[in-house]
Design a protein around this nucleic acid. Structure first.
Lengths: 188, 188
DNA sequence: TTGACATAGTCCGTTTCGTACCGTACTATA
DNA sequence: TATAGTACGGTACGAAACGGACTATGTCAA
């Protein structure tokens, strides 16, 4: 078996990360967009199940442009904004990613749960306080998510709303959990 | 207000990351441990709500030792294993972290949900396939978590088991969600 | 005309990731 | 008692991601 890349291989294979697809996907949904627009759009949606620093929304589209997956257009005027559009190749990459297996189950990171895990070294009161804080935070988050859901539910298709729904369910699961901890703190 | 650090400030303040506390906490729970033991212990517990590459379990304890929070002891023999123990200072750092607010609510990252969000560009069949895969994966994970829970439930205190319980609930929430998607795939 | 504020984008040092790789010990088999 | 296979234990290092401070631009209003 030859290990040489095929001489007519389609793409010089830039490494496409989840954020790459996220960017292409967002542009696919919204049409031509500037990084800042992407940032705002992500903040209300995709950031809830794929967080990342906004600075990536400036670098990543450049890489994708270099790879021929996006097209860049400079805007006139003082603001040197750049508008990115999905190319044929970009759309194709997106489509083929979409039908590829996503792999592992979700990852979560939660400081509060970390503390709970080590809570043997914590007084009962401290534990209750921790749980109480979490209950408050989850109530807030749930309110935010519900507001978003309400605001977008007519405008958006059911598919795009589904992740939000999952986010809500997750948050409610956590809320219930911490509520129980607060009400009946487990002994060490 | 002076911005100078207090001349007798207790620690030269190494930056303590979540993984730092995780390491100290694990050593606190298990007693003196080698990085490899930590790795194995983490794999069955704390990795479910705070994933990280195992290579950090070799570097991090060194940093913490330099900061006086751990103590390092070389083992005899061919294997140059190092056993780490919590110092007084380490225990104090751990305790004070435990009673400090954990901050933001949990973060999750999920490729499958990302794909779902962009599933407008996906056929109904592809969506059903995706959901079916997820259902399978979550069933597996739930089985694993249940096995762990069963295996450790007598040996461990209720507090240490609680995060596992949350993990299970989360997984069940996801399972239900994807099950519904599979059974009744939303239209775009 | 200035100054307060929201908008938009950049930069860059630090952490974290991820994984390929390298020794060491143990076991089974002949 | 060679040897080969495999699990164990650890290291190294380039590539990404992070994240926050900083710059600059537009806008409205006093």
């Amino acid at each position: 078996m030859s290990k040489q890349p095929h001489p007519f291989a389609p793409e010089p294979s830039v490494r496409l990360s989840p954020v790459s697809y996220l960017v292409m996907g967002l542009i696919g949904l919204r049409g031509p967009s500037t990084p800042y627009q992407l940032k705002r759009a992500a903040g209300r949606s995709v950031n809830y199940f794929w967080p990342f620093p906004h600075s990536q929304l400036y670098g990543e589209p450049e890489r994708l442009t270099a790879a021929g997956l996006l097209e860049e257009e400079r805007e006139e005027g003082g603001r040197h904004r750049k508008v990115y559009t999905l190319t044929k190749a970009g759309r194709a990459a997106l489509d083929s990613w979409l039908i590829s297996p996503p792999g592992e189950v979700f990852e979560m990171r939660d400081m509060a749960v970390l503390q709970l895990f080590f809570s043997e070294f914590m007084s009962r009161e401290a534990l209750v306080a921790l749980a109480g804080d979490q209950v408050r935070l989850y109530r807030e988050r749930i309110a935010v998510l519900e507001a978003i859901a309400l605001h977008y539910s007519e405008r958006q298709g059911r598919r795009r709303m589904a992740p939000l729904d999952l986010g809500l369910r997750m948050a409610r699961t956590c809320l219930d959990f911490w509520q129980e901890v607060a009400d009946d703190p487990p002994e060490a």
